[in-house]
């Protein structure tokens, strides 16, 4: 049931309380999508204002961050995804090719979880692997791991069925793991 209309002051107070705490999360997602600070600022601002405009439609008790991310992604699809962004790999095969292009040999070895959490597994390498992921896998992983949405919320944000989210998360992690193994191998850091 949507929120009933109250006074403008009530609306603003409720928005400040429930929506604005997610501004950093919205900005983070906007940066990921737009890939430059200027567009990210505009995208985040438009998302916040649109959320304010339609705040009566937000269902109290549901995940406000997920609701705002849905607006953000739709806004991005409608207004920003017009060739302005650097194109990432389109498919899992192409992704693998991009990783291989970084002088990485095919590798089926496992990641050592302790190594994964060690200082050697730097954020830079995680970012490298994430950036090269096909869009759909990266978006699913970011929404689950960084934005901490559940699978159903991710499905709502991305506008895909729940099963697709499960598949993307599973395949995305497998691709990440493979990429990190290759990076380790290339740098002579894999002990297995």
């Amino acid at each position: 049931m949507a929120r009933k209309s109250g006074t403008a002051t009530d609306k603003r107070l409720a928005f400040e309380r429930e929506a604005l705490p997610h501004l950093d999360a919205i900005y983070t997602a906007a940066l990921r999508l737009a890939r430059n600070a200027d567009d990210a600022n505009d995208l985040a601002q438009e998302t916040i204002l649109r959320a304010y405009r339609f705040f009566d439609q937000f269902t109290p008790g549901s995940n406000c961050r997920a609701w705002m991310l849905t607006i953000l992604y739709n806004n991005f699809r409608n207004s920003y995804r017009r060739g302005a962004r650097e194109r990432p790999a389109d498919s899992a095969d192409e992704f693998s090719g991009e990783i291989d292009a970084n002088s990485l040999d095919a590798d089926q070895s496992r990641i050592n979880p302790e190594e994964l959490l060690s200082s050697r597994m730097t954020g830079q390498r995680i970012e490298l692997a994430l950036a090269a992921l096909p869009d759909e896998f990266r978006e699913a992983l970011i929404l689950v791991d960084v934005q901490e949405l559940n699978y159903q919320e991710v499905a709502d944000v991305l506008g895909v069925p729940l099963g697709t989210v499960k598949s993307r998360v599973s395949r995305g992690r497998a691709l990440m793991r493979r990429a990190l193994c290759k990076l380790d191998r290339a740098r002579g850091k894999t002990g297995t």
Partner: peptide, 27 residues
């Protein structure tokens, strides 16, 4: 572990102060 590393490495970025100010003004 991979999930934790993604969260740690690609975590939430703080919105710039000028963006916050712009949004407040617009609201």
């Amino acid at each position: 572990a991979l999930k934790a590393m993604v969260r740690q490495s690609a975590g939430i970025v703080k919105a710039p102060a000028d963006l916050k100010a712009r949004i407040r003004t617009a609201l």
